[in-house]
Amino acid sequence: MSEKEKSRAKAEQAKGKLKETAGRAVGNESMTTEGRAEKAKGDARQAKEKMKDVFKR
């Protein structure tokens, strides 16, 4: 299940970055903010999975 969560985190990060970039390109501040939030959520999920890996050892 950990690998599934790691890939989910990467997908959230990529989706957030894409949305943030698109929002900046068209000048849509709310889209940019949503993208940053999604990216941060992916970053948090990835950090959680890394901590789980550390404690497995």
Score class of each variant (00 low, 15 high):
E34P: 11
M51R: 13
A14N: 15
K15H: 11
E29F: 04
K50T: 07
M31I: 01
E20W: 08
E38C: 06
A14D: 12
A9V: 03
T32K: 08
R45E: 14
D53V: 10
N28E: 14
T21Y: 13
L18G: 08
K52Y: 05
A14K: 12
E38L: 15
Q13S: 07
R24N: 05
V26Y: 03
A47M: 11
V54T: 11
S2M: 13
R45S: 07
A37S: 14
S30D: 00
R45W: 04
D43P: 01
R24C: 12
Q46C: 01
A9H: 00
M31F: 04
G16C: 03
K6L: 13
R8N: 09
K48N: 10
R8L: 10
A22L: 15
A9D: 06
G27Q: 07
A25H: 00
A14C: 05
T32Y: 06
E20Y: 07
G42T: 00
G42D: 01
K52W: 08
K56W: 00
T32F: 03
A11L: 02
E34I: 11
G23H: 00
K4I: 08
A37Q: 04
E49T: 04
F55S: 13
A44W: 01
K10L: 15
K19N: 11
K19D: 11
E3N: 11
K15S: 06
K48E: 06
G27V: 02
K50N: 05
E20T: 00
E3C: 05
R8V: 06
M1G: 15
Q46G: 07
N28M: 08
S7E: 12
K4R: 15
R8K: 15
F55M: 07
R8M: 14
G42Y: 04
K50F: 07
G35T: 03
G42F: 00
E34T: 14
T32R: 09
A11E: 15
K39D: 07
A11I: 04
R36Y: 03
A40T: 12
G23W: 05
A11S: 09
G23R: 02
A40M: 10
S30V: 06
A40Y: 02
A47P: 01
A47I: 06
S2H: 12
R36I: 05
M1T: 12
K48F: 05
R57E: 01
D53R: 08
M31R: 01
R45G: 00
E38S: 07
E34M: 04
K15Y: 09
A37F: 03
G27I: 13
V26F: 04
M51Y: 14
Q13P: 12
E12D: 14
K10N: 14
E38V: 00
A22W: 09
R45H: 05
K41V: 13
K50Y: 07
A40L: 10
K17Y: 12
G27K: 09
G27Y: 07
K17V: 08
A37T: 14
V54P: 01
S2P: 08
R57Q: 13
E34R: 12
T21D: 11
M31W: 05
E49F: 08
F55E: 10
K48I: 08
K41Y: 03
F55K: 14
A37D: 13
